[in-house]
């Protein structure tokens, strides 16, 4: 029993990271109809940018993180929107899917060829060690990750629900045409969504790199899980991404421990396949009526 609780706690921490990436995914989909197959690389690149700031510029981690957020929002937010999504979105979904797949390869191989193919250790923003809670041992890293991710998610929710800009963004996500009629600057709101996505990815990078190490292909599994999490939870629901992410994190840990670590990677997948076969709108999602 103790094992199980332990697994759930650390699984929730991992799941929170998946949820951050998944959240960006759903926001982009809702506001701009964009599926970003390079989402994993949007996490990988900031990890390396942070390493760059720390080792070549010599700034401490917190400053490197802030600088990276800015870089990420500029290139992976604004640049991605203007350079790739804007010209392609009118051709429909498939060319954009292919282009982001290409972007994923390009970014990955750019880091591999231009910097390093090795896995690089990444400083942990939280102290080492664990503390005891009864007979339960919880690491500071897990607690820190959960708190930080939780803080970001709660702030984002408050921003979306309580501020004028946030509500305008939600209006755009729900019904672009109606938002336009209401005089909302749709293009600006969509741009904000891209910036937030890039920011969330940078946060995910900060939290995931200490355990997964910074490696050019680290985005493969994060990107996939973010997408699976988004679908499992429900693509048209922000809460869905959170539920899906945490669910995957926990189940991976449990399956890895009780069944076989070799099939840990398959967990998100099985869950995903079950969801699209039996509840394609996702666990929390609302079914959309078939359009003619």
């Amino acid at each position: 029993m103790g094992d199980l609780v332990q697994l759930v706690v650390s699984g929730t921490a991992t799941g929170a990271i998946y949820a951050l990436a998944a959240l960006g995914f759903t926001l982009l989909w809702q506001a701009a109809g964009t599926i970003n197959f390079a989402q994993g690389e949007f996490v990988m690149v900031p990890a390396f940018v942070m390493l760059f700031f720390m080792s070549f510029v010599g700034v401490p981690l917190w400053l490197a993180f802030l600088l990276t957020c800015a870089v990420s929002m500029l290139f992976l937010g604004y640049g991605f929107k203007r350079g790739i999504v804007d010209p392609l979105i009118r051709h429909g979904v498939i060319p954009l899917v292919i282009a982001t797949l290409g972007l994923s390869i390009g970014l990955k191989q750019l880091v591999k060829a231009g910097y390093s193919a090795e896995a690089h250790p990444f400083p942990n923003p939280f102290p080492d060690g664990q503390f005891a809670l009864g007979n339960l041992h919880v690491s500071y890293a897990d607690v820190g990750t959960l708190c930080f991710a939780g803080l970001i998610v709660i702030s984002l929710q408050m921003f979306l629900n309580r501020t004028v800009t946030g509500r305008a963004m939600q209006a755009v996500a729900q019904n672009t045409d109606a938002a336009k009629v209401l005089g909302i600057d749709v293009r600006r709101m969509v741009l904000y969504t891209f910036l937030i996505n890039a920011f969330l990815a940078a946060v995910a990078a900060l939290l995931v790199a200490p355990t997964y190490l910074a490696k050019f292909d680290m985005g493969d599994s994060i990107g996939q899980k973010a997408f699976f999490a988004a679908i499992i939870g429900g693509f048209n629901q922000t809460r869905g991404a959170l539920l899906g992410g945490v669910l995957i994190g926990i189940l991976e840990n449990v399956v890895g421990f009780y069944v076989s670590p070799a099939y840990k990677e398959g967990v998100a997948l099985m869950l995903f396949l079950a969801v699209i076969l039996f509840r394609p709108e996702g666990l929390l999602g609302k079914a959309e009526e078939r359009k003619v």
């Binding site: 010209p87 392609l88 292919i98 290409g102 390009g106 591999k112 060829a113 231009g114 193919a117």
Partner: peptide, 16 residues
């Protein structure tokens, strides 16, 4: 190694 990087970005350009 640069080949795949170039290839990836070339795909993006091709789609555009």
């Amino acid at each position: 190694n640069w080949y795949l990087a170039v290839f990836g970005f070339a795909v993006v350009a091709l789609m555009i």
